[in-house]
């Protein structure tokens, strides 16, 4: 099959164009006053960094981290037992339950967010149908519940796949050697599922931290995350910030990229070829 290696060469070129080049341009934009749409000037400058002294930016960073960490924690606390429970079901039913976890992801994300918006409105069709009246629009609780509803499956899938593949004769071996149930869990099962935990945490936390539609809708615009600021820099106030909004947006995107590079390095240490990613 060695002769088929050349099939991978165009992909290398493809990735250079769509990953490496844009990253370089993002770096260039972030550290200069170059204008993407009216290229005339180019001067290296730190002026874009002033955004970090703005209170709305630091607030967005704190909220992004805070809400996504809380969301990830909740997803983990719910997701790990669920993944463990599902992985231990008989094979046939196991597959059906897993499929049922995937199904909701096929519904349109915006409509799902919009459904949450209805649920969190005190008087809505949801109240009509269920008798429950919730008033969570514009609150952190509302955003966290919405995020858990959006990203919980991304925590469960990688956990499920490591727990399902785990060799349960090791559990028996540990019991044979005198380990108690609790010991077995903390000394055998948990460490062996570490790869799945890492993938799950990252696949939940990164999208939660960078979401912008969900906080905009459920937060009623009162709570802005990093994603909202990037969106507004690139799509809304294109000529704002002294004509440098795209440069500022690039800088913030670069910061997000830094997080994903760090996550990436961590994932790669546990799973080189990304087998836990799907």
């Amino acid at each position: 099959m060695k002769r088929l290696r050349f099939f991978s060469i165009p992909y290398l070129a493809w990735m250079l164009i769509f990953i490496a080049v844009p990253t370089l341009i993002l770096i260039m934009l972030a550290f200069s006053d170059y204008s993407l749409y009216y290229p005339s000037r180019f001067e290296i400058t730190w002026v874009n960094f002033q955004i970090f002294s703005q209170s709305y930016m630091s607030k967005a960073i704190i909220y992004s981290f805070g809400l996504s960490i809380i969301t990830t924690l909740i997803c983990f606390v719910i997701g790990y037992p669920v993944a463990y429970y599902l992985a231990n079901l008989p094979e046939k039913t196991r597959k059906i339950w897993l499929a049922l976890l995937i199904v909701p992801l096929w519904a349109n994300m915006l409509l799902r967010i919009f459904a949450w918006e209805k649920i969190f409105t005190p008087l809505s069709i949801f109240t009509d149908l269920s008798g429950l009246s919730l008033d969570l629009l514009g609150t952190n609780t509302g955003i966290v519940i919405g995020m858990v509803g959006m990203y919980l499956p991304f925590m469960i899938f990688p956990l499920f796949s490591v727990l399902e593949r785990m060799d349960y004769s090791l559990v028996e071996a540990a019991k044979d050697l005198g380990a108690t149930d609790l010991n077995v869990f903390f000394k055998v099962i948990f460490p062996m599922s570490l790869g799945g935990i890492v993938s799950g945490v990252i696949m939940t936390m990164l999208p939660a931290m960078t979401s912008f539609v969900l906080p905009a809708r459920i937060g009623l615009g009162r709570i802005n995350l990093i994603g909202n600021i990037i969106e507004s820099k690139f799509m809304k106030e294109v000529m704002g910030s002294g004509g440098l909004s795209i440069n500022v947006g690039s800088l913030i995107s670069l910061m997000l990229m830094l997080f994903s590079v760090i996550s990436f390095v961590i994932i790669t240490r546990f799973d080189k070829e990304g087998e836990t990613l799907i």
Binding site: F18, I19, P22, T23, L26, I202, M203, L206, P207, M209, T210, F212, G227, I230, E231, F234, G249, S250, S253, L256, M257, S260, S263, F264, I267, L277
Partner: peptide, 10 residues
């Protein structure tokens, strides 16, 4: 792994 927003902007 990259967040969608970063991919989109790139």
């Amino acid at each position: 792994v990259n967040p969608d927003i970063v991919t989109g902007i790139s």
